[in-house]
Design a protein around this nucleic acid. Structure first.
Length: 284
DNA sequence: CTTGTACCCTGACCGC
DNA sequence: TGCGGTCAGGGTACAA
């Protein structure tokens, strides 16, 4: 499901209603909700009674600082990290949403204002874990730059790509090289940059790296403005779909005419995942 | 170190 | 109606 624009949309929806709220009660529906081998009992004990700070996002992770004091100042006691993976969803309200796409409860957090934060996940691939600030820092340091922030420079991107022989598409999906890009936006960015997804990353010219960087940023920003892409499961916190699926140029459009040159869009498999591209617009 | 593959899980869809 | 195969926005463990 969610890549950077979708996760960021969810973060924006959750930040205000959670800030400063105390967690009164925790319900975990199954063991595999807690990632990383710690027990659900430990998880529940470390969440109950704490206060939310400001919700953050890094790569495709949602980060919920949990504080011991109501003022939620200073470093949090724990950071609750959520990976939505393919089908995780959040909702917040007095009762669980009564909709067909919210029938696989994963976790409920009852808040001190009568609202409950609901997490639902059909495929159960997503989950939660708790990190101390120092542990999070170690994880953080292994992630690539945020594409929409200033740290994502042409020079830095060129240095990352230069030694790699893997196809550029695969590299865009690798969170330790660049954070937040997933399968949809990788194909879309390469189309916008006019670069063949099979090209070895290190073979891109400086000019092509610059074009790709611009394309990645442009497509993520455009998707963010449309509250993300809903293919199937993704919903914002209020249950609304995104609308960027209406603006995709290649993703999911196998055999349909390229919007630029009418050539049928090609689908191929790279690293076990579908890549969509235009063999005419994206060639040297 | 880099790279590729299998796997986690459920549900939708397609051809027979 | 049912059955088997394929595919889906992600990430990790493991092998080569």
């Amino acid at each position: 499901m969610p890549e950077l624009p979708e996760v960021e949309t969810i973060r924006r929806d959750l930040a205000a209603p959670l800030l400063g709220r105390r967690i009164e009660r925790v319900r975990v529906y199954h063991d595999d909700l807690v990632l990383g081998g710690s027990s659900r009992q430990t998880f529940q004990r470390n969440v109950r009674g704490r206060y939310f700070g400001t919700v953050a996002r890094r790569a495709k992770y949602l980060l919920f600082p949990l504080h011991d004091d109501a003022s939620h100042q200073g470093p949090p006691a724990r950071i609750m990290r959520v990976q939505l993976r393919m089908s995780g969803q959040f909702a917040i309200g007095p009762t669980r949403p009564d909709t067909d796409d919210f029938r696989h409860p994963g976790l409920d957090l009852r808040l001190d204002d009568g609202q409950t934060l609901f997490y639902d996940d059909v495929r159960r691939l997503g989950g939660f874990d708790l990190l101390r600030p120092s542990e999070w820092l170690a994880v953080e340091n292994r992630l690539g730059p945020e594409p929409l922030e200033n740290g994502f420079t042409v020079a830095g991107f060129r240095a990352v790509l230069a030694p790699l022989r893997a196809p550029i598409k695969n590299v865009l999906l690798d969170q330790k090289r660049l954070a937040g890009v997933g399968n949809i936006y990788a194909s879309e960015a390469l189309f916008r940059a006019g670069i063949d997804p099979r090209r070895p990353a290190g073979s891109l010219s400086s000019e092509e790296v610059g074009r790709l960087r611009r394309a990645v940023r442009a497509v993520l920003r455009a998707a963010l403005r449309k509250a993300g892409t809903t293919i199937k499961d993704y919903r914002a916190v209020n249950g609304q779909s995104g609308s960027f699926q209406n603006e995709l140029r290649v993703y999911g459009r196998e055999d349909a005419p390229c919007r630029t040159c009418e050539t049928p869009v090609t689908r191929l498999v790279q690293a076990g995942r579908s890549t969509f591209f235009c063999s005419r617009c994206q060639s040297d």
